[in-house]
Simulated assay, not measured.
Amino acid sequence: MFKQFATLIRGRAFEAASVVTDRNALPILRQQIRDCAHAVQMSRKAVAVAMAQNEQEVKQHERLTQQIAGLEARTLDALQKDREDLARDAAETIAHLEAERDVSTQAQARFDTEIARLRTVLREAETRLRQLQRGQRLATATDKTQRLQQVAPDSGLSTLREAEDTLQRLQERQSEMDATARAMTELEATGSAENMRDRLAEAGCGKPLRSSTDDVLDRLKKKVKKSDKTKSN
């Protein structure tokens, strides 16, 4: 008996909540649309921030490229003047700069991918938001018309169905936002894999990911030898 009584209480509470929700469908829908519009605005800001960060990364890459070119020219001059001590120090600096340049290149590629994804999500969100706003205006107009005409209670079910359809589209939008969060988690997992790759490379497992000081120095020595041969010819 107690179990049936508790079930009755839950059933009455559910019906009461449903009645309140149905009677306030339009205010609830308007607030949900405002929340959705805020989420779209935050998405726009996310795209803008990603684009700004990518622009900074491009400038950083250009600066590193210029520094490497300048140091290589001076290192070649040092080798021609038999200042291998200076050339070795410069080669070490060049190797570090080349590593930073490679990281910057990878960062730009990631930014490009993320910006493209965010733009796609934003376009879809803006389209869905406009659909929600049109549906809300239609539901509001229908509600006002029905009130003026003093229609029978049963005929108001069509407006409720329209509101329910609009709410369903909003829920689908919220599911899409959850999917976006899961995608971002997967991107973070990809970053962890790359960190493991770097650790393995630093331990000498597989092909090195960046030039060493000796690699840079050997390459520049070859340039000097080639230059000397050209002058002698």
Rank of each mutant, 00 (worst) to 15 (best):
M196D: 13
L129D: 00
A139W: 00
L132A: 09
L138I: 12
Q168S: 02
A189H: 03
E186S: 13
Q174N: 00
E188A: 09
M184S: 11
T142M: 02
E176A: 13
L148N: 12
K144P: 00
A141T: 11
A183I: 04
R182D: 15
A125L: 02
A163L: 14
D154Q: 10
R128C: 04
T166Y: 05
Q133G: 02
A152H: 08
T140S: 11
T180Q: 11
R173F: 10
A189V: 12
Q168V: 04
T190L: 15
D154H: 09
R182S: 15
M184R: 08
D143T: 07
L129A: 07
T185W: 15
R147M: 04
E194M: 15
D143R: 03
L157C: 02
Q149E: 15
R169G: 09
A152M: 10
A179G: 12
G135Q: 05
L138S: 05
R137E: 12
G191M: 12
R173V: 07
R134Q: 13
G135I: 02
L129G: 01
A152F: 03
L187V: 10
P153G: 00
L187Q: 07
Q146F: 11
R161D: 12
A179E: 14
T166H: 04
Q149R: 09
Q150Y: 00
D178I: 14
S155P: 03
A163S: 14
M177I: 09
P153K: 08
R182N: 14
S158T: 15
T140H: 05
R161L: 04
D165R: 03
T159K: 02
T166I: 09
A139L: 05
E188G: 08
E176S: 05
Q133M: 07
L187E: 14
A152R: 08
G156W: 01
G191C: 13
T180R: 01
Q150F: 01
L167P: 00
Q171V: 09
Q136E: 15
A181N: 14
T180A: 15
E176Y: 03
M177W: 09
E164S: 04
Q174L: 00
D178W: 11
R161V: 13
R128D: 05
Q146T: 06
T190S: 10
R169S: 09
E194I: 13
E188C: 06
A181D: 08
A125D: 07
L138M: 11
L170R: 01
A193H: 07
R130E: 14
E164G: 01
A141L: 12
R173I: 02
A163N: 12
R147E: 05
G156V: 06
T185Q: 15
T127L: 13
T190K: 13
E164M: 08
T166P: 04
L132W: 04
E162I: 03
Q149N: 08
L167N: 10
E172P: 03
